[in-house]
Structure formats: structure tokens, C-alpha cells
Design a protein around this nucleic acid. Sequence first.
DNA 1: TAGATTGTTAATCGATTAACAATC
DNA 2: TAGATTGTTAATCGATTAACAATC
Lengths: 215, 215
Amino acid sequence: MKNSRDISSSVISRLPRYYRFLCELYANGTTRISSKELAEIMGFTASQIRQDFNCFGGFGQQGYGYNIEQLIGEFAGILGLNELKTAILIGAGNLGRAVASQMSFEDKGFRLIGIFDCDPLYKGIKIREIPISADDAIADFCHEHHPDMAVLCLPADKAPEMVDTLVELGVKSFWNFSHYDILRKYPKLNVANVHLSDSLMTLSFIIKNNSGEEV
Amino acid sequence: MKNSRDISSSVISRLPRYYRFLCELYANGTTRISSKELAEIMGFTASQIRQDFNCFGGFGQQGYGYNIEQLIGEFAGILGLNELKTAILIGAGNLGRAVASQMSFEDKGFRLIGIFDCDPLYKGIKIREIPISADDAIADFCHEHHPDMAVLCLPADKAPEMVDTLVELGVKSFWNFSHYDILRKYPKLNVANVHLSDSLMTLSFIIKNNSGEEV
DNA sequence: TAGATTGTTAATCGATTAACAATC
DNA sequence: TAGATTGTTAATCGATTAACAATC
């Protein structure tokens, strides 16, 4: 078992995937699984799965495999899903409203407690019981509720100023849908970026380089 | 210069990022750049940038660096951004409508030509001039327009059947926002997955393992 | 006990970084 | 020409895979 700081980013990137597949197996009634079986399902090697799991502890039993219910509990703990962090969402455009209304924050370690938009058009509209407020209410809200995380669903040009403001107000973590590179200015913040256009361009590349192949 | 099939996934994952930064530099009026300067801006090493670029050809000039306008052209070609593929979007819920209305498909190598939803509630509503149609119109539409790609914005439980239908209708590429694992059943299709909840769980992990650190 | 499967060490493979001759 | 910077080869580093003793 390693110190959590020593977990490589390759391993980290696989953790949510493990959690997702294990939950799915459990929902289907499977109670135990070997690294070999899980490898087949997930498209990994059994070796890799055992290596990955053993970064966090010896969850298995020789000759038996892994207990899925236990594994799910371990991974939830590793990912911090049980310690709900409070989150606010900035930018209630199409994307912001989609995220606010469809993402089940509670299952992923967060609780959404506020939604803000610079456009007063949205003011007062509720999403999941949470009223949308104007941007000028952010400071007071943060002073009162000290949100841990902010979901950034605003255009890249408005992001820098907003991040400055939020950092000033004590927000240390960002789920960033904008194209503003937060870590360049604030390398110590906790950031997960979602670059939808990068993903779409990657698909364009894959298509370009696979055409002519059989399906 | 390598055969495009030999490009490693590590390099591929960096291509959209290069394109994005180069466009930004160009928009700011920069016309040339050395691998060293670009490395500082992007947080890579100069070595890696030169290695990456040389997978595709020698775009630079000794003693001078790289011409940004030329590089952007090369990358657009590499990514296939100029050969517009036709796309349809399935699922006009919050997320689907957000993607349909906000993503600039044309800049990323695609042209959105149809939107479909199983719920007739949306029928006739237009997003960017494209009317939302009911699911039962998909077959006729595909027979007529032969879309290259489908954006899947529907729940995981409805995805398998929809993918079967679309594959049958000749769609070979998917931008997949659902949690259905398309490649397990169809390993030869072109797929880019967007797992928003994986990203959010990763952020939860990062926060859990960074708390106590200075910002 | 015998069979199965883990946890862990060793071997391999691939990606990143460093170095430097080529050359603009 | 001298300085700068590439393209490319070699060295290093890290991640993945294989192997196997430990043990349930």
C-alpha cells in the first residue's frame, strides 16, 4: 500500500472506471470476482488490476478473488465519495443548466448548494430546488456558506476574472468546463478540466485515420 | 514522420491541446514560436513537443522555430478538421440541447444535420435551424442523408438498442455521452467517450488527497 | 489436501527526457 | 560567420505485463 500522494496519474485515471464497473456488477447481483474475470470485462490485464488495487491495500483473498460489495466500499472511500463537498455552479446557460439538473452530485462526493449567472434573465428560476442568483450575490453567498468547489460553465473570456474572485473568496477546487487554464496561474488548486471540444476533435482524428477499415 | 496508425495514444491525446494553444497564440498576434517557448506556455518539455511534431513531419526550421500559421494548418489537416463529417444528435434533453446549441461543430470537423428525441414533447422545436424530430424518423433520415457520426446524449439503458439501430443504418462513429460501453460490442467503431461523472469523481479524489496543502 | 487466485517481485515495454550533430 | 533551434538518436524513467511464491 502506497502513500496516496504516490499514486500515479495513470492509476488515478482508472479509479472512477473501476468504481463504475464494480457498481454495475453489483447491481446485476454479482458478489465476487477475480482479477482475471474483471480484466476480461474491463479490457485490462489481470496483472494491472491487481497492481492498481494494491496501491490502496490488499482487498482480495487468495484462491477466492475480491468481494464486490467490499471493493465498492473501499473505492468510495478512496475517491472520497462519502465526504460531501459543497459546490456552487457558475453560468446557467444551456450547459450549466444541463449539468445542474442532470448530474447526480451526491453520488460523486458533492452537494450543489448554489447556482449563479451574470444574466439576470435567469434570476429566481429554480433547478432542483436551487434558485439561480445573479453574479453579484456570489460574494455574500461564499461568506456565508464557504463552498468547497465551483463548477465553471462560463465562457473562457469571463473565466479568469471569476476564478480570481472565487479564489479570493476561499474556493480551492474547480470543475472547469471553460477553456481557461486555471492551473497555470494557480498551480496548487484542485482542478478537473472537461474539454468537450478536445474530445470532439479527437473523434475527428480517429475517424480520419480509421477510414477504410472494416467494422 | 510516422504512419498515422503508429501514433501512440499519448501523442493523440495531446493533439487537440496543441491546436488550441496554437490558435490562441495566433489570435494574439504571435507568428513564430520555438519549442522552448511553447513548452513553457503549455507545461510540456521542449523535447516532447519536437518529438510529437515530428511524428507528422518536420514543420520547423533550425535556428528559427515554427511558423504558427503553418502549424495550425498542419494540425487542422492532421485532425481532419477541414473534411466536415455529418452528424446527428440523439437525445434532446438538457445535455443534448446544450451540446446542440453551444458546440461549434464546424470548427471541429463536423456538421450537425439532425436532432432526435424519443419524447414527442420536443418535436418541431428548432435548435440552430435544425428541427428536433421523433426517434421513429431516424431510419428514414439515415437512409436519405447517411450521417457519418452520432452524438449520443441519452440514458445508458436506452443506448444499446439505439447503437444497434444506428450501426445497422450505417453510422460508424459515435461521440458518446452515455455510459454504455460501445467498443465492447463493436470494437471497430470510431468512438470518443465523455464521462462527466468520471471527471467529477476524479476531482473528488484530488480534493481528498490534497487537503491540508497550501494554495 | 488440491486448486485457485492473490500480492509482489522481476522483466519488458513504451514514453519521456537529454544530448547533440545538422543546418537555417 | 555565429547563434539559435531543429530533427533525431541515445539514455532514462515509469508503467505495464509476466512470473511465482504465499496462502486461502
